[in-house]
Nucleic acid binder design. Sequence first.
DNA 1: CGAAATATTGAAGTTATTCAACTGGAGTGG
DNA 2: CCACTCCAGTTGAATAACTTCAATATTTCG
Lengths: 253, 253
Amino acid sequence: MSSKRSVIELKAHCASCMQCKVRELCLPSGLSEEEVREVDRAIDGRRLLKPGEPLFRVGQPFQRLYMVHAGSIKSFVIDGDGKERVIAFHLPGELLGLDAIAGKSHACATQALETSGLCEIPLYRLEQLAQRMPVLQHHLFHLMSHEIRQDEQTILLGSTSAEQRLATLLLSLSYRQHQRRLSARAIRLSMSRRDIGNYLGLALETVSRVFSRLQQRGLIAVTGREVSISNIDALQMLVNPGGMHKAHEPGRT
Amino acid sequence: MSSKRSVIELKAHCASCMQCKVRELCLPSGLSEEEVREVDRAIDGRRLLKPGEPLFRVGQPFQRLYMVHAGSIKSFVIDGDGKERVIAFHLPGELLGLDAIAGKSHACATQALETSGLCEIPLYRLEQLAQRMPVLQHHLFHLMSHEIRQDEQTILLGSTSAEQRLATLLLSLSYRQHQRRLSARAIRLSMSRRDIGNYLGLALETVSRVFSRLQQRGLIAVTGREVSISNIDALQMLVNPGGMHKAHEPGRT
DNA sequence: CGAAATATTGAAGTTATTCAACTGGAGTGG
DNA sequence: CCACTCCAGTTGAATAACTTCAATATTTCG
């Protein structure tokens, strides 16, 4: 049973913040050993999600934040026509639920794209800790600011072509893998073409066509959900013609 | 001199947080009188901007947050082709610069759409105060969460039609005016058709055409930058067909 | 292996963009 | 006070981009 094996793996990796791979991106960033242990104690649960399993739903009362530990998660809403609209894809080290602090209940739903592990942290515990730890308080502001920055990047997709949108997504995934010490060239997409379309505001057929076009032009190599970036500079140029400065600092997805 | 008169008005209104009209939306929200006075003392300047005047630019080192006190502000970036892409319009009571905490420098530029007043608050002062005032700390998280929520709403525009996009903007402006105890029906747009297009990801001609179409169908009445919403329910239906529940809680712009 | 889900590709149809002409109001100067 | 200019906005016609519908291929998984 792959699920059982995953649980074991998860327990091994996620037993404590001290050994966590995404520790630097996560809440403990910048804290002393003792402080990390305190944060660790504030975590009131770990969850393992199977592919497609929901984490929380729209309107569900907000209780805790979730840190992605492993795997990947999509957040989305369902519009009046019943059509899904993806807001973001979340990778390990990214915090979920930040948009729910303001409204007391979740504004979007979340679902695992693959087997994923998450750490659960009640907000009130976090606020208590932040009250005593200026570094943690600042880091929380930092994390939220980062989220805003990423969302702004995503907003800008609205006024770009289909090719630019997909290129932006690929570069974002590439950059975030790189941040996590994974290959910046080889990407395994955990989401379907439909999810990508829903995220980028394109029909899934358009996504498929753009993949083909980018491959034909030699920018990427695609095999199903395996994408290899052959010419990262050309992709950058596509996203931001008149490339300017700025070596590498795209956004989340 | 309209500028001089505005300065006087601004000084009168903005001299202290205690009498500020947007106090409930702003930082003092939920604080005791004494605490409000402390926040007031943390404000290290007020600025008056004339129409079109920039507040900060992309890449400018981040130093302080700005609270819109009066008027309206747009935030935007310039892409590689030199084209402007508007990220948001900000009304009184909204905090600017939150996206810069993470990157140490501003990710977008800002500019006044009309004569506008702002309060400047250094982040480090705010963090110091939040360290001593749990309510303020929580309110800051709340404000940032709200910003994230709004940005998510804006992201969703990417997958909608031109009509839905414009309707969403109008409803957002309407709601925010309502929040500020102004008319929810009569809107005076402080931004040009071009700005609206850049924000919505549409050509300015399309914006103009959609205004005309919505007017023909009796949903709104348009006279230049004066827009009156005639049928708010129909507008809601346009944005969210299969209207569902949810009386009134759209987003920022 | 076979069924179901996912992905690709083509052709027709829709929507929004672009280019271009025109309107109307605000401000300037004769 | 009117003519002139400039800018914002509107409208039309042709074009380009994306979507939709439909058929086919491929992968996944029980």
